[in-house]
Every structure is written in C-alpha cells, then in structure tokens.
Design a protein around this nucleic acid. Structure first.
Lengths: 215, 215
DNA sequence: TAGATTGTTAATCGATTAACAATC
DNA sequence: TAGATTGTTAATCGATTAACAATC
C-alpha cells in the first residue's frame, strides 16, 4: 500500500501547490506543505527525495518545478485514455463529468450490452460490448472503469481480461482480487457506508474523539 | 486507520461466511477464513478476539454465531437511516440501488437545491435543501451522502454541519477534512484513477510483479 | 558567520504475523 | 492420550516521524 499512499500524497501536494501558486507564491518550505496536510515535513522531504524532487537549503522548493515534476511523474502531461464498461447512471455520470481533464485523463468510449444505450454521436461514443476487445487493442487502452450491476460483474471481468486490460476501477458491488495480470481497485460504496456508520454511531459515541483518516 | 481496516475485514468475513453458509458449512477454522482473504489466521483470531467472537479449540467457530455477532457489531440488524444531498446522476444511482438493504442501510430521503428535482411521491422523497435541517433533527439522522458538483460542495458542507450531521460520505470532487464534530470520508474518483493509471503504466511496466492491495 | 532548511539516517509507532502455551 | 486449534504474547515488518549533519 505504500506506493498508493505516496501517489495519493503526490496528488495532495499537487492540489496544495496549485493553490499556493494561485496566491502568487514562488517557493515553499517542506513545512508549508506538511502543515496543511497534517503530515510531517520529514515525510514531504522523503517523498520528494524518492521521486527525485530536490530543493535548496536556502529557499526550499520552487513551486513550478515541483508541480512540473509531479505532473511528469503522474503522466498528467500525456493524455491517459480510459474506457467505461456499463453505461448506467454511474457510467453516464462519469462520462459527463469534465473534471478528469486536469489530471490528463480522458474517457474515450463507453461500452454496454444494451443496444438501447449505443450512441455513435456525441462527445463520447457508446459501443456494443462486443467491440470492446478490438477497441482496446486498436486504441492501446490499459485501464477501464467497470460500472455494471452485480449480475453482470463476473462476465464483464472476463471480457476485460480477454481484452488484456491491465487495470480496473471497479464500481460494481462485487469485489474482485488483483492478480499479476490485472490490477483491480474496488470502489465499494456499501463498505464505505457501513464503515462510516459504525465509526459515527458506535465508536465516536463513547465520548472518544477520534479523528478519521480519510484513508 | 486501524479501526477502518478492522471493520472492512469484518465485512469481508461476513461475505465469506455467508458463502460458506450457502454451501452448508456449519463450523470453520480461522485458517478457512484467512486463506481466501489472503491474511494470516492470527489476524482473524485477533479480530475475533477484539470483537468478542469466540470459538472452541475443538471445532473452531460456528458460522451462524460469527455472522450473528458481526451483524450485531455492525448494527446491520437495526435500520441505519441515511440521507443523500444532491440528486444528480450519482445521487439518483445510489437512491435506486437496492443493495444497501442487506447491510441494514436505508436511504430515506434526498435533498436538492433544484426545484425540478423535488419529488413527493415514489419510494424515496426528494425534498428542497431548506428542509434538510428539520428533517435530520426530526428523523435522528447522523450520516449523509454528499453527491453535489464542486461549486456546491463548500456550501453543502456548511448546511450539513448546521444540521449536526456527524458523518459524510463525500462524492464531490472537493476533499474535506474530518474534525472532531464531523467525520468526512472522501470518495475521490480522480485520485483513484490517477493512482490506478500510475500503478499500471509506470510501476508495473518495469517488469515488477507487484500485486495491488485493493486498499 | 549565524541561522535555517534540506537530505538522510536512526527511532518510533502501529499493524500484521509467528510462535506457543492452554485446552478441548 | 495424541492431535489440532484457539487465544495471546513476542517478533517482525513497514510506514511515518524525529533528529541531525551537511550546506546554502
């Protein structure tokens, strides 16, 4: 989980530094970054060190340099093409959401088993699921979002595997395990809700003041 | 983060034990649970110990007893009422999703600023945002799902705080920090995607066979 | 130079696992 | 009893933090 934490922090650094930048700040010290994020300055410096971001003992880190380096590391400069399988309400919501662009992510196509969903026009086409494999190969896609109902989950996974997809963000209620061939990150809403409810109702109630970590 | 991990594991145990049960299994050993989940039997026993689930050295744990205890711990027996603020595509998707029931969670109302979304009929009513505070007080709601666009996020948070909501599952693209008064779990799709893309394209590419942890 | 910050090593902290005594 | 599993303590492992030498 260490890499995931580090990449998540990198994103936090990016957002914070962009805000610093919009305030006109040019240079920052590790403390300036650590404090708002509630982590230690050592960790910021260690993260930077690991990713080859260096500063100076005099003036800390240059905001623009750090941002450029982070974008380079995260690949936000090239466009990362992603497909969505399952164009229900969640799939549609993600397709119409414009916020991925700033991270260099572009949803290039949707796929669905239901012919009524097929749409050749519009910004993002919706294609029949049968075309997934060819599309993924022809457009060199490695990552897919899976937003299908539980009964379709297993079958969809097989299709994605057959298409040689390497990473799946899985919104279906069925959890799947990663293997060497395919990385699957499960986005399980039920789990999150149960967790939160437990925390709020059971744990915090006992007069304890535990602040949750937001993952 | 320890509690969250433990509760997540409790949910995994629950799902696995339900499958064991459907196969007709009556008793299980800690090994039987640990292996499919890829954790150690010690951890299973430790988790059980912490939550007061006990077994016997002879026959391990009784499936039904463990399930009953887990449901009790998670509060899945009583109905946990949750409201949704922001009835866009994601909000609607969650409202129409029937899978929360098995975990004892019920979405009892939606709230929106847009009068066109208001709906008095139907299974789950959609009310004007102005009624949130009264509703939350009258129905003793502690947890809310926030599914609003970024521009509405800050304002919505203020309303939820004013309504004395204790826990928020935040689907908006704006991250918020938990405080002592309110626990906020951010469900940030962009982060997840950037993470996954980095992992698949950059990290795994180097011939390394790292299996992701699915959180 | 004196002061302050980086880069890096050592210490801490917490979660998970291994080991094993107790016990059925 | 012998064998196997639980419950629990000690060891390990990894991530974060503290400390500090190097350096601007």
């Amino acid at each position: 989980m260490t890499i995931q934490n580090r990449i998540n922090r990198l994103l936090s650094y990016k957002h914070l530094l962009n805000r610093f930048k919009s305030l006109g700040m040019v240079r920052v010290f590790s403390d300036n970054i650590a404090d708002p994020l509630g982590i230690s300055a050592s960790l910021v410096r260690k993260d930077f060190g690991i990713f080859g971001i260096s500063g100076s003992q005099k003036g800390g880190y240059t905001v623009n340099d750090v941002l450029a380096k982070i974008n380079e590391i995260l690949g936000s400069n090239e466009i990362q093409k992603v497909v969505i399988v399952g164009v229900g309400r969640i799939g549609e919501a993600l397709m119409s959401y414009g916020g991925f662009q700033k991270d260099g992510i572009k949803i290039v196509a949707g796929f669905d088993i239901d012919v009524k969903k097929i749409k050749k026009t519009g910004e993002i086409p919706v294609k029949p699921i049968e075309e997934l494999e060819d599309y993924v190969r022809d457009h060199n896609i490695t990552v897919a979002i899976m937003a299908v109902p539980d009964i379709a989950a297993q079958q969809t996974l097989e299709r994605l595997k057959a298409a040689k997809i390497k990473g799946i963000l899985n919104f279906s209620p069925v959890k799947f395990k990663s293997t060497e061939e395919i990385t699957i990150n499960n986005f399980n809403i039920e789990n999150e809700l149960v967790n939160l409810i437990y925390f709020v109702n059971k744990y915090k109630k006992n007069g304890k003041k535990i602040i949750n970590t937001n993952h």
